[in-house]
Amino acid sequence: MKQEKILEVKDLKQHFDAGKKGVIKAVDGISFDIYRGETFGLVGESGCGKSTTGRTIIRLYNATNGEVIFNGKDVHSAKSKKDLKAFNRQMQMIFQDPYASLNPRMTVKDIIAEGMDIHGLAKNDQEKTARVHELLETVGLNKQHASRYPHEFSGGQRQRIGIARALAVDPEFIIADEPISALDVSIQAQVVNLLKELQQERGLTYLFIAHDLSMVKYISDRIAVMYAGRIVELAESDELYNNPLHSYTKSLLSAIPVPDPEFERNRERVLFDHSSYNPEGSELREVKAGHWVLCTEEEMKQYQV
């Protein structure tokens, strides 16, 4: 079954000018497709460019090079206000820091309704209030919370308000930028469960950005591993987990602490030599069906053995 592509990223580059130090290549030529209705995980350690990738896709940054094709249209060449507004409704984002992602001077109602105000989705205040209440219920909060201010909520509750805000404009595609990394363990599960439920109910597509591989493995259908601005490996999540090929993926997987003392006692870490990493001449090649690795022609043959 060939699935429909909702998003195609082609050779995306995002370089920042860092003055005398030269150019920082935060994202250095990455390509991937995301299919409608799936969850695509993007993992990597801090500074690997995963968040920049997400922000560039949603146009918070203008790409240095490359194309982002969403629903068949290149979003980075869209210029008319109408096109951009339509794009803003279809693609939404959930942010990392539950304390910084809500405006402290706005009530929960105003925060959630912001998208409706901008796009004129509610005819009157009554309709808007009703919709906000409905959204609050969807994310597991009470109607009474609408008139409160963000500082009165806990991290998990705030994150759910952030999700409600994104949902208010009925998007098809949501970029979740480390949505759980600032939350407590028990609260992480609440948010992940909520995201999964919403996906089933509304047929959402997620780009799930995180550094916690175990949670990404749980929520994602396919996972891409990023290192130094490039994707080093991309595969279905079980395949990636059980059969990692790139040495960086292996080291990353072997470093995840597992909540099982017996397993931890017998753990052996795979070390990755950062200084020997040289992507020159390498490109993302399909080693097996659906399993891509950043490698040279020769390395590919080795992987395939």
């Binding site: 806990s154 998990g156 509750q157 363990v185 028990s186 609260i187 992480q188 599960a189 609440q190 992940v192 469960n193 999964k196 175990s214 949670m215 493995k217 749980y218 999540s237 079980d238 987990y241 909540p259």
Partner: peptide, 24 residues
């Protein structure tokens, strides 16, 4: 139990995580 259950295990892809409801 809640803490342990809220973490995914390797083969728990299809199951719901056992989240602890509410806040402290």
């Amino acid at each position: 139990w809640g803490l342990l259950g809220s973490l995914p295990t390797v083969d728990s892809n299809e199951e719901k995580l056992m989240a602890i409801p509410g806040t402290p």
